[in-house]
Nucleic acid binder design. Sequence first.
DNA 1: GTAAGCTTAACGGTCGTTCAGTAAGAGCGC
DNA 2: GCGCTCTTACTGAACGACCGTTAAGCTTAC
Lengths: 201, 201
Amino acid sequence: MPETSTRDTILEIASRLFASNGYAAVSMRDVAARVGVTQANLYYHFKDKDHLIRDSLALIIAHKMEPMEECLKAAHSNKEKIEFFISWFVRLVFEDRVFSKMILRELLDGDEDRLQYLSMEVFKRPFALLVDVMREYTGRVDPTLSAVSVAAIILGHFQLSRILPYLPDDRADHTAPDVVARHVLAMLQGPLHDPAGSMET
Amino acid sequence: MPETSTRDTILEIASRLFASNGYAAVSMRDVAARVGVTQANLYYHFKDKDHLIRDSLALIIAHKMEPMEECLKAAHSNKEKIEFFISWFVRLVFEDRVFSKMILRELLDGDEDRLQYLSMEVFKRPFALLVDVMREYTGRVDPTLSAVSVAAIILGHFQLSRILPYLPDDRADHTAPDVVARHVLAMLQGPLHDPAGSMET
DNA sequence: GTAAGCTTAACGGTCGTTCAGTAAGAGCGC
DNA sequence: GCGCTCTTACTGAACGACCGTTAAGCTTAC
């Protein structure tokens, strides 16, 4: 009766390695060395490398998506739901870089089958919840498009945060989770456009 | 006097291969075979694989960023500058997937040196232009943060477009460039929030 | 004894890279 | 004109390193 089984240890370490370096850049030897076992041991627990990748993905995503439902349930109004969601998602993306890089890499290079599987098995429900929230929040605007926008802007901020330090006018807090969260919320709640700047209502 | 030099042919084909498959997944043998030369020939024109990657990146990015300046110059008002930029950038990202995947992959996995190089040599000026536009467009809001948001939301929409077909409530036009462009512009110009939905000003 | 959990040691293959060699042409003394 | 050298562009064949994977054997617990 193992404290934490070797299999779970492999999964945890493998998912961290895959997420931060990419699937191709991490060899079975790398994983084995990190875990402290031999390469052959990995093949005792997993059929091949692809199955190790799939199981790593499924484990980490399912685990990370759980808090979203509770997060939305805790909110009383729709306004609060949006606030809670944005705050939660920004924090998730910015603070768990392992997770967000894994997602982004999958969106970028994941083969069609794996993407379809993940969409329908893991992302479908959280996305539907977000669309529901946006449906009641936005007026005439397409709720699906709005939901995509919210996810997109947060993921995009995270990605661009890597080059922000090398661009002019950057302040350290441009990549701080709460600053980004407040900014995204402000974009949804009001126009960035300042009517005083030009001549309009 | 070559019609198109072998070196340019290599660069063009290599950048296309790297962009659509990733650096790791494309071998020098792959590039050579596609071009129709031997692997050794690649080492006549480029020091090693990393230099081939760098030159491919520099070529394609510099080329793709050129139209931005003209695009902004053509606009008369600041409002028009934003409209033109969004329209141009959305079209660039959505229609030249080779380019956008290359950028996104670099943001995700590019090593620090290459990212710093690209930021300071290629992205610095276009980003500064965008910040300037946003500075005059937004009121109290941080212009750098706003510029990042605009780029982020467009890049994010593109990335998410891969799983949108597998998610519920999807319509085909959710990934159409002009639809996305109009939606992004609408987000900047007005609140998505419909005051009639809740009780606020 | 036997099964689970793991190791040792190797396999065939692909990778980036190198190096000796070659064909084509430019420049040049004669 | 011819022969000669040197450069440019390129090829064929190989190098060692690393990859995913597997067969066979060794422990330990029941």
